[in-house]
Each structure stands twice: as C-alpha cells, then as structure tokens.
Amino acid sequence: MAARGGKGWRWGGAVLGVAVLLGFPIVVSDVYLQHLAIFFLLWVTLGTSWNLLGGYAGQISFGHAAFFGMGAYTSSLLFAKLGFPPWPGMLLGGVAGILLALPMGHICFRLRGPFFALSMLALSEFLRLVTLNWRDLTEGAVGILLPPFFISKLPYYYIALALAAATMLATWFLVDSKVGFYLLAIREDQDAAEALGIDTTWYKLVALMVSAFFSAMAGSYYANYMAYIDPPIVFSIVDISIAMILVAVLGGMGTLWGPVVGALVIVTLSEAFRAYFAAAHLIVYGVLIIVVIVFMPEGIVGSLAARGPRWLRPRVATDAPGASQG
C-alpha cells in the first residue's frame, strides 16, 4: 500500500515538474529570470553529458570545452560561410563533436590512468590555438558575430529545455540498458570487465561519443543564443571544462539528478554571489567548492541519497561512488 502511494506521488511529482518547466517562461515574464533559467538548462545539459562519461563510465575529462567549442564553431561557421540555418546546424555541431571524439577515444582509451583526462585538456587547448590562428577560416580572435535569431526568449527557452531533456533521457536509457551495466563494470574494475569479455574500449567510446554529441550541441546552442563566440570563450578551461566537472561533482557523480541540482546551485549561487560579495565573489565560490568536496564528497544528491527516498539514489550504483575506490 505504502509503496503504491509512493508511486502515485512520484507520477504526480513528475507531471507537476513537467508542467512547471513548460509553463515557467509563460508565467514568469521577467527576461532576466528567463535568461538564468536558460543558463540553468544549458548547464544541466553540460553537466549531464560530462556525468555520463565521468560519473557512470569513470572516464574523467578535463577538456570537454573541446567538444563545446567544436559545436559552437561548427554551426556558427556553417551559418556565417554557407548560410546554413543555425538550428539544424546544432545537430551538425553535435555530429562534429562525435567526429572529434572518435580518434580521441581510439588513442586514449587504450591507456589507463589519467591519460585520457590529460589528453582532453591538451585537445581543448590545441583547438583553441587552432581557431585563434586559422584566421582565414575562423576570423581568429575577432570571433564570429551572428544575428540574433529570435526576439523573444521563449523559443530559446524551449530549445534549451528540449536539449536538456534529451540529454537526460539519453543518459537514462543508456544507463538502464546493458551498456550502462558494462560501463559500471568498467568503472568498478576494468580488468574484471575485460575478463568477462566486455570490449571495454568500445563501450567507453560509446559513452564518449554520446557525451561529446550533447556537449557539442550545447556549444552550438550557446553560439546561437549569445550570438557571439570567440576562441577564449568557448574553449575556456575554467569557465567550461572545469565548470562542467563542478556541476557534476557538486550535484553528485553517477546520479541522474546530480547535475540538475549542481546546475541549479551553480547558476543561482554565482548570480547571488556576484551581487552580494562583489569583488570577493570568486573567493566565496572557491570556498564553496572546498566545503562541498570536504564535507559532501559524494555531492549533494549522493549525500542526500544515503538517507533520502529511494528514487533519489544513484540509478546503477548500489553503493555510493566513493566507496568503490581503492
């Protein structure tokens, strides 16, 4: 009985959640809040796609800005040079992300240890330098200025919502499928996974490609929404790559809802800190990172899940991600 009641609540909650998300920009007409909501959704997308690779498959990347920037430049250049419409261009941006991920994964997943993390960082810096110096193609540091596509924020909001939802659904399906169990097996013990006959390189590559696809789509979206990109912005280590990890770790790695909570915390706090702590806001931000990691090493969702309701717990991991180390 009790379980049934719980299930009913869950469905009720889900319907309510969807209604709130769909209705938000209609009810709240304040463009400033709409802008923050859009960035929240963008960070849900980025955090979730990083989490699929880092949290579920255990492959930590320090350079996901490589995919973000690749997507941003692909769709923007297609539009600026060939007049290719920017929203379908988002899909091509995602495909470009996959094309970048393929050789990267092939080279790096053969190796163990931190090589993948380091190579991703090198890749994103390399791409930043190439876009900066290949002036004939990319305009270099001058960047690309696009015309704004919509006056109202509503279309932007719903596209961001669709992107975030697609990323989360993709993660959910993938993690729930047999691929998800293989990824978990790889994360927990790669040797054992190989001994069981799992093609570890292939499954890691699948996770990387899906992750790259959505990160790159988010990059294209950013370019379309902000209508201006330049290499230091879209290939930023701190503002993109590290921030993606932060969203996932803060919320809870290897949990579906972790990046959502992480994105909410990051977007609202950084806006609040900017207003209230002025020059000291980055110190407060740094202290926050330290405090969360020291006191909530499994992230907000991970820590709550240990004592919270069952549905909040990590979907695949039976134990908390931290406990499996060593």
Partner: peptide, 15 residues
C-alpha cells in the same frame, strides 16, 4: 559587475 564574461554581461543588462 559582469565578471568579464559575455553571458553575465547579458544577464546584467537584461536585469
């Protein structure tokens, strides 16, 4: 304060 980032400049001006 726009923290030297375009998206923050945008949110500041919309505000």
């Amino acid at each position: 304060d726009t923290t030297s980032k375009p998206e923050v400049a945008r949110s500041a001006v919309e505000k």
